[in-house]
Design a protein around this nucleic acid. Structure first.
Length: 625
RNA sequence: GCCUCGGUGGCCUAGUCGGUUAGGGCACCACCUUGGUAAGGUGGGAGUCGCGGGUUCGAAUCCCGCCCGGGGCUCCA
């Protein structure tokens, strides 16, 4: 709570109009008070009744010295950028009023929620003007990082940068042919949103038995069914593989850290995120929101020479935790606990950093490509300070050239964050919401903060530049993007499906009747031998029903076996990828070897894991109907 | 956090200006059906109507608080 306390000759105010719906009732009449201490009061987030009491106690001490007994509590929002909600604020102020009255003061209060005009005459003695800041008793305080506060005040300039280096102010860019970029730019700049519907992927993640909310946990903490766990594990493995191929050393670091650690507490205030806090004995711990601390602390103790640079350190954080505001959570798009691949690179100087940055840019494109997301599916945003752009124009242009599509540019006049350059790939979903997948940054602060140095060729210690990259973004968010993409495909008349290598069941065998069960089971065994996730439907259902259910599970290949197959040894394969709504004729006749070869080509060396479910459908439970 | 809409067997839902045993579909179980590419038939079991409190002779239904989900807001004393 903040109170501007003014000992006044008089104050005159008049409510003009209601500013918010929950404003108190009041008449629009002028009120005047003389020889009074005016308390311009602002209730901040986290303030409670105890703060109200504490504030009044503090004020009373001064009233005694001023020899005044009359106060006016005047709601005044403009003292803080971290306001409490209106109902909370009103409650706290009413408590102040009540408590002050109980304490024998003559109390007046201006109405809450009104735009008011006022004139004031302040006395000229030394104690007449004071600012009071009252913080809640410990144990309840919320830690809001400086970066989070700074982000609210930051001033941005927006442009579109096209391949070839043309920089156009956003309002002069012609978005014809760049619908998604336009949606993304709008989303970023004005936060205009329209949707009033359940996001497609939330329905799909349940129906396909991928993941669901777990009410017994905190908000935004999910449970993963076998199929979902499989998909997630495959992506985790794929991304890790790619990052290690690129040259990173995989490590593992703790998920919780001491709040009081000097490097950490400083860093916390430079990162715009809210933390989960936990008390353990007499320590205050927080759950990590990225792998940064773990890796920096690990590197801090290493002996680094310029000959080692650039070095790359990688961790797949399972989990990273961010205590997002409850209203910001949305399905797999925004969680409080998520799996984040986090890869840092230490570079000797800006030249090396830029070279490395570009490599990682290309790595990220190729990682998303592997997941089944092409450049058509996402938009590039690049953010930097004006100075950095002036000095590195060609380099930034080269990123857009590699990307091959115009990019959204955010330019800042000064540096608020710990980085000078950052890019992300942003996915725009079925309800026009945008969210970042891959990202990388050039960090010029943290080496110093964590005492990370390397020895140069001249024997001098220097601070390296640190690059922070997540080549895929959160794994959960990748799955969100894949589901949303599948849903949007459906709208364009394409069958919704996951990439073959991520499909929990890749092939389903359906025998026409019990007479072919043995044949079917043998076939399944053969196919399985080629590292294919295959199952078979041995339930007492009609053939049509079994085909329908297989289609609803988005299974890419459905093989029906009966008399014909047994005799000819040629399979009848229903190929989902050839499907069009209302259009039959997706059946293909092929030999087993041809099918296996086609599968092999399509999965193209991606990670494989066996089916984590019973192969007989009659043995398989449903987790979500 | 605030505003708003919602929460009814495992899932989707009807019922909601108070009034019989809360109705249907999917799924599950049993039986019949043994089939050729998106729902075969009959029967059965399964419900703390999100949780807690209140009003009432009587509450899924009205009131209050809380929890969970979706959407919106970041305005403002």
């Amino acid at each position: 709570m903040r109170i501007l306390q003014l000992h006044s000759n008089f104050i005159v105010y008049k409510p003009v109009r209601k500013e918010i719906d929950s404003a108190e009732d009041s008449e629009r009449v002028e009120r005047r008070f003389e020889d009074i201490v005016v308390l311009f009061t602002c209730v901040e987030e986290g303030d409670d009744e105890r703060v109200a009491v504490k504030a009044v106690d503090e004020v009373r001490e001064h009233l005694e010295r001023l020899k005044v007994n009359r106060i006016l509590i005047y709601p005044y929002a403009h003292l803080s950028s971290n306001l409490a909600g209106p109902s909370e604020a009103l409650r706290v102020m009413r408590r102040m009023e009540e408590y002050a009255r109980e304490a024998g003061l003559e109390v007046y209060r201006a109405p809450f929620g009104w735009c008011k005009e006022f004139s004031i005459s302040v006395k000229g003695h030394p104690l007449a003007e004071q600012l009071r800041i009252i913080v809640p008793e410990e144990g309840r305080e919320e830690v809001v990082s400086e970066a989070l506060k700074a982000e609210e005040k930051i001033k941005s300039h927006w442009f579109i940068l096209s391949p070839g280096g043309e920089l156009t102010p956003i309002d002069r860019f012609n978005f014809a042919g760049y619908g998604k970029l336009e949606k993304f730019a709008r989303y970023e700049m004005s936060k205009v949103r329209a949707a009033k519907q359940m996001p497609a992927h939330v329905t799909l993640m349940k129906r396909l038995e991928i993941a669901d909310h777990e009410p017994a946990s905190d908000l935004g903490n999910f449970k993963w069914y076998p199929k979902g766990r499989l998909i997630k594990a495959l992506i985790e493995e794929f991304v890790s593989q790619k990052v290690i191929e690129y040259g990173a050393m995989e490590v593992e670091t703790p998920i919780m850290y001491d709040f009081g650690h000097p490097s950490l507490s400083d860093y916390l205030h430079r990162f715009p995120a809210r933390q989960y806090l936990l008390k353990s004995d007499d320590r205050s711990l927080f759950l990590r929101f990225s792998a940064c601390f773990g890796q920096f602390l690990l590197i801090h103790n290493s002996q680094l020479s310029y000959k080692h640079l650039p070095i790359r350190v990688y961790e797949l954080t399972k989990y990273s935790f961010r205590k997002e505001k409850s209203g910001e959570l949305a399905g797999l798009r925004r969680l409080r606990a998520f799996t984040m691949p986090d890869c840092h690179a230490l570079c000797a100087d800006m030249e090396q950093a830029k070279e490395e940055f570009l490599r990682r840019f290309k790595l990220s494109i190729s990682v998303l490509e592997g997941l089944g997301l092409t450049k058509d599916d996402y938009e590039l945003a690049i953010r930097f300070t004006r100075d950095f752009y002036e000095e590195n124009r060609d380099f930034i242009h080269s990123l857009v050239d590699v990307f091959g599509k115009p990019a959204l540019i955010e330019m800042w006049d000064e540096r608020f964050f710990y980085f000078v350059l950052k890019w992300e790939f942003n996915f725009v979903d079925s309800i026009d919401k945008a969210s970042a997948l891959s990202t990388d940054q050039i960090d010029i602060e943290n080496a110093k903060r964590y005492g990370i140095t390397y020895v140069g060729s001249d024997g001098e210690r220097r601070y390296p530049l640190i690059l922070h990259c997540s080549p895929s973004g959160a794994i959960e968010r990748d799955i969100y993007a894949l589901l949303e993409k599948a849903y949007m495909d459906m709208g364009r008349g394409k069958p919704p499906m996951l990439p073959l290598w991520l499909s929990p069941v890749q092939v389903r065998v359906i025998p026409v009747s019990e007479r072919f069960y043995e044949y079917a089971e043998n076939l399944v065994e053969k196919i399985e031998g080629y590292n294919v996730r295959v199952d078979w439907d041995d339930r007492q259902l009609t053939l049509q029903k079994k085909v329908r259910e297989a289609e609803m599970e988005w299974i890419p290949y459905i093989i029906v076996v009966g008399e014909r197959e047994v005799e000819s040894d040629i399979l009848t394969v229903r190929d989902r990828s050839l499907g069009r709504p209302g259009e039959p004729g997706r059946l293909r006749r092929m030999r087993l070897e041809e099918l296996i070869e086609e599968l092999r080509v399509k999965v193209n060396g991606k990670p494989f894991k066996p089916l984590p479910l019973p192969k007989k459908l009659s043995r398989r439970p449903r987790f979500y109907s």
